[in-house]
């Protein structure tokens, strides 16, 4: 994000921030309202809640943290972070599979 933006550009950004703020409040209300829906499928409940949370997360990261228009180096850092965080999640889920190598070695030892 340029630090030498004109006042007009900053005013436009401010309008965008207010729009994002309203969207985040609406998203929060929808998240809570959705939890009161009598949905019997656990997978559907989780999917709805995490879908709304993802949109809200994107709005905060994209506009409040300016990731939508950041420098290449920041993207590089974040790509590496996402790679390792995804790896961490994958290892966790993989370790829960009953036929995974971790389970097999634990049983044999």
């Amino acid at each position: 994000m340029s630090d030498h933006s004109s006042p007009e550009e900053i005013k436009k950004e401010v309008t965008r921030y207010i729009a994002v703020f309203v969207a985040l409040i609406v998203g929060t209300i929808i998240t809570v309202a959705a939890s009161y829906l009598h949905i019997n499928s656990v997978a559907e409940t989780v999917a709805i809640a995490l879908f709304i949370a993802s949109i809200k997360g994107f709005l905060v990261a994209g506009y409040f943290m300016h990731l939508i228009s950041e420098k290449k180096m920041i993207y590089g850092i974040l790509i590496a972070t996402v790679f390792f965080a995804a790896g961490l999640m994958f290892l966790t889920i993989w370790s829960m599979q009953s036929d995974s190598l971790i389970h097999t070695s634990l049983i044999h030892n």
């Binding site: 998240t31 959705a34 809640a49 949370a53 943290m65």
Partner: peptide
């Protein structure tokens, strides 16, 4: 300092549905 604050907000956005609603 604002970037850090937004990250704190971002974490809560995920924590709230996961802990309170699911």
């Amino acid at each position: 300092s604002g970037l850090f604050w937004h990250f704190v907000d971002l974490v809560w956005i995920v924590l709230f549905p996961v802990l309170y609603l699911l």
